[in-house]
Amino acid sequence: MSGDDWLRKDRLPHIWCAGCGNGTVVNCTLAAVDEIGWQRANTVFVSGIGCSSRAPGYVLTDSLHTTHGRAIAFATGVKLADPSLNVVVITGDGDLAAIGGNHFIHACRRNIDLTVICMNNQIYGMTGGQGSPTTPMGKLSTTTPFGSVEPAFDLTELAKAAGANYVARWTGFHVKELTKAIFSGLSTKGLAFIEVLVQCPTNYGRRNKYRSVTDQIDYMKTHSVLKQKADRLREEGNELPEDTIILGEIVKRSLPAMGVRK
């Protein structure tokens, strides 16, 4: 595979901790970008601030590492000014759901032709493990020392409600499915949103009883259910446990999109 050709090899090894899932998402993204046949010269990676947002710095294309939460707004400018560029936004849960929530829902509403990949590690990793809008109820972080008391954000439902053309959720374990989902996202006209649950052993796992990297992967593996199965179970009148992670393609449609290459 030639995903390796897309890497800035002189910058590796990267800054992420051992076992961090962000690197896996970069692999899957680059594999999908390579598969779809985009050229390095007309692909732009945009990101905000946070662990996830360091990713474009390791990709050998034009890359824009912007201010906290504003990645989608910057990407909107790039895409509308030159629709011939393929724009991928790599962002994190704090970046996208907290400070950048407004830009996110409006990009979904505009259905602008971007692919947004959210590396959701359910914590603010770079600043040392503070609670984020996606930290599940009861989970520990440095700012939720007695367990988070706020309900967590379901980003895929948000994107769906706001009007994105493609919405999917996978985890850092399901690499093949994730690559396929990113491929579908890249080929979708309009906003494609792919949420990836990734493990954060240093700041999330350590405080929440996942002793090793593989423990958190195991948790994601055993607690995830495909959307089709979840729908079927619900139809049959079964209650899904609250911590179930619903994976798969949440929505795929072709609403009018903006900034599509002519």
Partner: peptide, 14 residues
Amino acid sequence: IGGIASVIGASWAG
């Protein structure tokens, strides 16, 4: 904030 961000993005796009 989005306004100036999109302007910077467009400027980089030429």
